[in-house]
Design a protein around this nucleic acid. Sequence first.
DNA 1: TACCTGATCGGTAGCGCTATCAAAGGGTAG
DNA 2: CTACCCTTTGATAGCGCTACCGATCAGGTA
Lengths: 365, 365
Amino acid sequence: MVRLRRRRGALGEMMPASGMDALVAAPAALRMEDVARLAGVSVMTVSRALRAPATVAQPTLARVRAALQETGYLPNLVASGLASSRTQVVAAIIPLISQPFAPTLQGMTDVLRGAAYQLVLGVSHYDPRQEEALVRAFLSRRVDGIALFAGGHTAATAAMLRQAGVPLVEMWADPATEVLVDAVSVPQRLGARDAVRHLVARGRRRIGFIGGSTLHNIRQQSRLRGYLDGLAEAGLPEDVAAREETDGFLMEAGAAALARLLERRPGLDAVCVSSDILAAGVVFEAHRRGLAVPRDLAVTGFDDAEIARAMFPSLTTVDMKAEAMGRQAAAMLLDRARQGGRVDLAAMPARRCDLGHALILRESS
Amino acid sequence: MVRLRRRRGALGEMMPASGMDALVAAPAALRMEDVARLAGVSVMTVSRALRAPATVAQPTLARVRAALQETGYLPNLVASGLASSRTQVVAAIIPLISQPFAPTLQGMTDVLRGAAYQLVLGVSHYDPRQEEALVRAFLSRRVDGIALFAGGHTAATAAMLRQAGVPLVEMWADPATEVLVDAVSVPQRLGARDAVRHLVARGRRRIGFIGGSTLHNIRQQSRLRGYLDGLAEAGLPEDVAAREETDGFLMEAGAAALARLLERRPGLDAVCVSSDILAAGVVFEAHRRGLAVPRDLAVTGFDDAEIARAMFPSLTTVDMKAEAMGRQAAAMLLDRARQGGRVDLAAMPARRCDLGHALILRESS
DNA sequence: TACCTGATCGGTAGCGCTATCAAAGGGTAG
DNA sequence: CTACCCTTTGATAGCGCTACCGATCAGGTA
């Protein structure tokens, strides 16, 4: 025997006296065998009692459960995962842990909890290389599914995913974007167009746009396009100087962007902002400058984050159904995972779930 | 042979013709053996090249790495975890995915990424029973460490953790709270006292308090106590009717709490609020009612969340160093995990790391 | 009585890695 | 030239569980 079985054997295997000291407090975790012995059954029966209780006779099941209770046995899911090649874990890769992605995560964990799945988290910081590294790590862990944000994947990422054949779902897609397989989407472009349409209906004509970097970020791309759609539809001229890109997605970035924008185009009477967080910053900056919202400047946001509802003035916004998106993504992942086996991204009919969009009118416009 | 080795054997093991159909697209993941064969070494050498490259001779290492590259091999960390009884995963259990906990998570993932550890996430919704279920699940997964929020554990949770002997760290503790082993804390009680002290120095005398439920939540408990300390120190009377408990931790809950509070105590000239999110809601509600902040009502928050810095008026707050707390917690966990072996909570000298506190003065007071 | 069926349970052989020991080679001190 | 040590590599035996096949047995059928 090469590896020492550090188990208190039923007598006989006592350590030499010195061992008592060296091995302080090393009770070693219980194994199924221990439970089985106590219940007077085989390990397989214990395994079945845990995995498929319906296949075990009532009296036996009761005995096993009593033994489980008595020992406080915690199954080793690592061994289980190796033996069954199913880990009961799904991974999520998000750009940042912040609004509006936190509700998506929340939705996912809520659904997964009900199915006894766990969620491993990866944060990509909007960097395709980091996403690639995360995908690699998660595939190495043999997760049963991966949820990621649509768009901005490296070629290597796509190749690995295709090769691994793991259930996959992309979130926060726009219906028009190309995806790998399954996707949950919200029509972001239409949403932005509707926001502009609404501002036009309110009599605004000098409508600016503030958004995050569109690099590797298809959400920002879609929203910008929707804004341009809205201008075109209303016959308003496109004005590059009326658009400003933020540095990051914090409120302060929104505030700074408005400051720069107003320097160039002081006459703006409305701004379409590509995120509620940025929009909140825009409103704060407007107030700081003595501009009244919406009287002097109308503002629309995106996502329907908590702050949009709560702030004063409350924020007109496009509901991205962030939490529902998480729930839906988790459900789709579980569905694929439960079918078991490889998922062939090439052959598989892609499933898309579109959650629809809704402009929510509030005080800021 | 019982279990079918579904591998393209080097000839010989061909499936019967019908198999071709049944087994569409089942390339099966590569194993170390495949890499080893290609590199002309044993599997152990591949394992070493991956885990401990320094112990492999340069030319061999190069050959193995080439083979690794060529095959695109992804190590199976499940098998690795079983064999080595180290999973390279740590778990975090947080009450909610929201401010101010999101930065803590962010800090943790940042540190863990550098150490090739992954983070599994659990959300307890402030419910000790859910926390218990999560701890059970994580222990079953044999995570290498668990970070949880201090306080509010069930007896069973504590017992399991003690029994499992897994590295542990509690976050968001107050230095005075009792913890299981290691903890990262911030003096929340002192922080709240300082906030009140500051309001008093600004000439405020009718100072109210708005906080979340103190049930299972030692952070809220500490902050409330600090507020009372502050009043006592200034010789101000304790007034139960000047305190209001919120329903949840959203901005709207803060707004609603202020509304109730002002109904009972319309003459308040300051409110000490136990979270920036709630405090933002309080400020919004004040504005909605035509009260100027800080002229008519001074407001202090807690946590130094993004909104405290960004909003107008910006929020005086107590910095909880949320992200640093996450970083520190992850570092302490890794330190314990790398030492390997069981952690005996009873015998182990507890380590506490106190990050200090800081009142940040801004416009709202 | 012989045979079949379905429910229940156990034995065994892995799952894909790593820990441990053993062996082989090369250098070097005596 | 021998003894010894260090470096490098390989062979082997698990890690703790589950998939698979078989065995057993009660009950029903022909």
